[in-house]
Design a protein around this nucleic acid. Sequence first.
DNA 1: GCAAGGTC
Length: 973
Amino acid sequence: MRVLCVAEKPSIARSISQILSGGRVETRPTQNKFIKNFDFDYAQTNSAFTVTAVAGHLLAHDFPDAYKQWSSCDPFTLFDAPIHAMVPAGNKSIERNLLNEARTANTLMIWTDCDREGENIGWEIISVCRKARPNIVVKRARFSAIIPQQIHRAAQHPVELDKAQADAVEARILLDLRIGAAFTRMQTLTLQNRLPQFREKRDVVSYGPCQFPTLGFVVSRYNQVKSFTPEDFWYIFLSLERELDGEMKKVEFTWRRGHLFEEDVVIEIYEDISEFPRARVVKVTKKNVKKWKPLPLTTVELQKAGSRLLKLTPKKVLDIAEKLYQQGFLSYPRTETDQYDPQFDFANLIGKQTVDPAWGRFAQGLQEGGFTSPRKGKNNDKAHPPIHPTAHAGNLAGDEKKVYDFITRRFLASCSKDAEGSETVVEVEYGEEQFYATGLIVLQRNYLDVYPYEKWTAKEIPDFRENEEFEPTTCEIKQGQTTSPSLLTEADLVALMNKNGIGTDATIAQHIQTIIDREYVIERMDGTTKHLLPSTLGIGLVEGYNEIGFDRSLSKPQLRREASSFIVQVCQGEKSKDQMLMESIEQYREMYVIARREFEKVISSVRRYIEGNRTQNTTGGNGGQGPGDGRGGNDGRGRGTNNRNDNNDNAPDNGSRGRGRGAGRQATAPSSRRGRPPPGSPPPEGNDEDHPRNRGGRAAPHSRTGVAISQPDVLASRSSSSAQNVLASSDRLRKCKCGAPASRRTVTQTCARQGRLFYECSTNKCGFFEWIEDEDSRKNDGPSPLVPAKRAFGAEQPITTSNILTRQCRCKEDAVQRTVTKDGINKGRIFWTCVKGRDEGCGFFEWEDEPSKPAQPMTIRTASQNNASSSGRCFKCDQEGHWASACPTGGMPNRPKSHGASKSDTPAAACFKCGKPGHYSNVCPTAIPLRPDSRAAVPKKRGGTTSNDECLRCGQVGHYSSGMDFHALPQAS
DNA sequence: GCAAGGTC
């Protein structure tokens, strides 16, 4: 019997021939220079084997000539035009070889990769071979690594090809072609027709169902960076010098509250604890801790690690892994699987690594009892195992060695044990405030010995006894500032695309390259890190389509996710290929009609960005200086500059940066508040009696001058927002109802108002509140330092607040954005909801990637109605009319708040703050109230700060607007 | 001149 085996690629044909023949193989050339035929007898099945290959897909799909010319038809007709499948010219030699070999074969055995595309390529091979021998018997060899055990098993136990998977891929091919061609031609031709820049350059302005969501991610992050406003915060820092092993060691204690955004509150707390001379050790805990070994390696993790640890681009890493796979050193490198099969042969593979000079001894250790089964991830593509070394490679160099080393070390690490350590936590009470310090001793490094990409640093801490008291060496207020998110890196984008199902392991890197090639996105080096930012064309397109307002946005991942889920349905036989195609084409056809009808919006958006750029360039825009030149102004509260190079500890002249609240007070910056300057600090200057260092003891409890402000050890924002740290002179005169200068603050919550500035009473007495509208729009004026020029059209284009779309809920408030975190088809999808939360709000709910609905009157909901929303959709079943908690399919019980709750959905689970069951952490009676209640936590003896004020966001009394928890929806973050 | 997915 003669068996013709056809692999997906020449390298696999060679490898399986070597394995099955035991090296006794004859090689014949074909007309294709890459493809060889390998002949040998396979005694195990008493057959004559010929092994050959194709090179990926054998067939190409295209429209007939009447539709190929762009001017020959309306692009709309491409939704219905015939599509031919043919062997393209470049593959004719491969086709001829298959026809020749099939004529004399009894059996055709398909050896393509075991995934959907492999099944489809298999059918392409069958369709060609049957032309030469219609009744040839067809079998499918199933394998997931090029190792003898698997290859022999596949050859001796072939299965049937999965037609449903091949059909699903066929549907995807046809759909992508129709959508891509129709939208690309329409938008390219229209833009060329209407805008001279496109007529001159004649570049294709392509649309693709993966390209546009990828671009959407870049634009979205860019807008987040652009609209970010840094916010100052303050915290109390405590330290103690104590002897450890004969040396003085500085123990730094962290404030349990973390940091607070209300400076006044921190000062009051600081002054309160100033009344106490000593701190007390409340508890000393020692426990064994583990640092978990890494999960088995997937393609996406490999690409991310390659970018972050090895400094190789995702595409480069994948190219190298592919080459090493073809050489037999690695398993298949394109896999989503992060769990091993229970029968996986670890011993054999570990044994192959014992010869390596770098990690051979570690591998031996695994053989001699150190082996522990790898952790089990949550993903399994059922086609391939996690990426692992299949042979030892001793002669690699350069980037290939870097990639091979990483994969092998990762594999050995995953077969080792978690690292083990002993952690000490010293909890301290100082006044009514709590602090803690931690120490760590690493007991067993285990996997860390072979995995240098992770660190676990020991931190020694001197002995402390419970109930002992000590006088802190330092107690001071330090200041920091929230930092902007970064623009996307390639690794970030890979992760986002993977999470949202855009592209495959093999194509994600290519899609990124495409939007760069199309000049929708520009790469920019920031030091050694490469960031991606949208071009003016990229932003113009995305925002233009957003203005059209589709049911499902073209630049969001939802559409592609749906397509993927349709493909899975076809694979599982739940839907036929034709049915899936019909439904999907109809959906896109409707979108096309809307896009064509309203394309004027895209044109004006693109024109606005591109020509706005040019205008700025020719009218002498300041070339990206940004609005932040006025650094060093005064905010009216005497805080002084915001220069983070200042450092009190090192600055002998402390007078330039103090708070200066008291009239004529010189600012102070001692590190100790009780006349106990830290070693090396300069002698006190001046004669200020209120200076705490000069009062020979403690600071006056109610004085606001004896406060040390250390400049931040938290880095500043990279964005151009320093202008908002500077007050215009008129701002200094703004007074609240009680006559005091008003404080200027910034909304920091992630909501539609994020970044907006407002005034409020600086003493929190009169409840004064006012938005700073003019300032808000002013800060967005002027050219941006971030928007790059596209195609030399000009310099940069400002982003205005009008570009950041917001929606209003039925209370006529700006709605807030949330993201679905629950697993399911909507995971990761963004929605708008009422700022007041589910229980108190109007029930407003809209998906971000769907158009805003006409305003509906707000209805007052009773408590019994609180689980339903007329416009919202349930997260669980996606039906309207009820929330997930009341879902008839099995909703979750209500939770008081979403944040900080334990993972369990029932209050029977332990609170994570106090460890007791019966309540969630956000209502924990024992835990220290964190930010939402920070003002209320201040002793009320001074009467200024209780939580009797109205919340800025919902108008209710009893909590502050800063408490996101009061407004959050369950299951979202 | 168009897509996404294979591979060379």
